[in-house]
């Protein structure tokens, strides 16, 4: 082909447009799609595998937990705090006006059944595990949890009240499978 010997052939279509432009763009488009298609499985392989996802929910038996007690369970590699709150703790959490909260949420919206508070035990500041699960732990100024890393105080609804953390302790997706059992995740 004569064209093959002269890469900068005369234009064939509109001013400045050549068959070569078309070929280049087509080739480039195919190459981009191809690279994307190849990259996809590689990137996807780093996402949680099926056996990891299969272990992504945890069942918790609530019957041994007495009023005022808390347990820590492992869920997706993280601690989850399950706390059976006393009446006055619930009352304290519900009396706080939303205007005083950094991350305004009502206590009712954070629980399914009143005494049971279920939150992910990871401080929303930089990921430490707050203290407050044991009776001997420091629970901060608001009687919930206290993060020793940078001094965040959480209340009895797991909401941030004081310190650098920007948000409340996260409430995981969970439901009651019976009166004394929950399934997290």
């Amino acid at each position: 082909m004569a064209d093959a010997m002269a890469p900068h052939a005369a234009p064939h279509g509109e001013a400045g447009e050549t068959r070569r432009d078309f070929l280049k763009l087509t080739t480039g488009a195919f190459a981009a799609v191809g690279v994307g298609a190849i990259a996809w499985p590689f990137i996807s392989s780093m996402n949680p595998a099926r056996d990891v996802l299969a272990l992504a929910s945890t069942e918790v038996d609530l019957s041994p937990i007495a009023v005022g007690q808390a347990v820590t369970v492992m869920w997706r590699g993280k601690p989850v705090f399950v706390r059976r709150r006393a009446e006055e703790e619930i009352k304290a959490a519900r009396e706080v006006p939303l205007s005083q909260l950094r991350d305004p949420q009502t206590d009712q919206s954070r629980v399914i059944r009143d005494p049971w508070l279920v939150v992910v035990g990871v401080c929303t500041h930089l990921g430490c595990v707050p203290l407050g699960q044991k009776p001997t732990d420091a629970r901060g100024d608001y009687g919930g949890w206290f993060c020793p890393c940078h001094g965040s105080h959480y209340d009895t609804s797991g909401r941030i009240r004081l310190g650098p953390a920007p948000a409340n302790l996260a409430v995981p997706e969970y439901n009651f499978t019976s009166d004394t059992q929950i399934r997290i995740g």
Binding site: S45, A49, R50, V52
Partner: peptide, 13 residues
């Protein structure tokens, strides 16, 4: 075998 069965696109890799 886990790569073959559980990892996303592990069989392909």
């Amino acid at each position: 075998e886990r790569i073959m069965r559980d990892v996303n696109f592990g069989w392909l890799l």
